[in-house]
Amino acid sequence: MYRKDVRRRRTILVALIVLSLILLSIHFSEPRSGPLHAIQRVVAAVLSPFEAVVGQALKPARDLVNWFDDTFEAKGKNEQLREDLAAARTELAQAQAAIGENTKFRELLGLDRNELAGFVPAFAPVTARVIVRSPTVSNATLGVNAGSEDGIEIDDPVVAGAGLVGRVAEVTSGTAQVQLITDPRSSVSVKLVPDGPQGIVEPEVGDPDDLRLDFISNDDEISEGQQLVTAGWSNEEYSSVYPYGIPIGEVTETTLGDENFQRITVRPYAEMRALQYVQVLTGGPERPGIDE
């Protein structure tokens, strides 16, 4: 009897492990339109109203907990913010002077302002509330309460007031899954402004507050506080998911690397763990290799 129980227990365990591995394999091998993805989207769509209700019902408790957390953090950030404000005032003055010059040069060259306005204004932003978050260490994703019915498509860029948040990785009729730029599978091509080099921003698994900027040569001069925006590259066949000019963050630390590239740490502007609302940039100009 005991042996029979042990055999039964082991059989069930092995069957469940095999089933999990089969699901994993199918999920990776099938296209997004495959049956497993379709079932997943149906389950997510069924659960989303409940998620929204639970999220709203427990919002006061969530706000209370976050208030304690924010209060502790705010004390530490106060001094830093004062320094940032002083630096921002100086930069604003310089930027206003540059805008004035830019306008004059445009007039002199006869350029159409709209053609060079950049990609970002061409998108139609859809504001969405964050309703779910992934709890796992190595999976930085969140779910929002807007989906394909609102015009959201896979690979649409997602921003918050302060900067880039990520991109849409999956979409159902009423919800979308956003892959944050702190997700280990994420990488964003960026440009250091005003006239710095281009590189790739990637996360480090386990560190949700910082990003790493790669492929910046040891010869390039990078200063702390220098800002990064999305590079938005494009050619006839391929293009970046993100349009040019979305702010990402600023350089907080630079050290010369062992090889040819510097080791640069970037602090993103958007506070990924405090996001309550985001904007999904829908529509926009066609991106070769993505909108096909």
Partner: peptide, 15 residues
């Protein structure tokens, strides 16, 4: 399914 993430990963760990 709820998080629209890779199916099977959480199942394997939680089982």
């Amino acid at each position: 399914a709820a998080l629209l993430q890779t199916m099977g990963v959480s199942s394997l760990i939680l089982l």
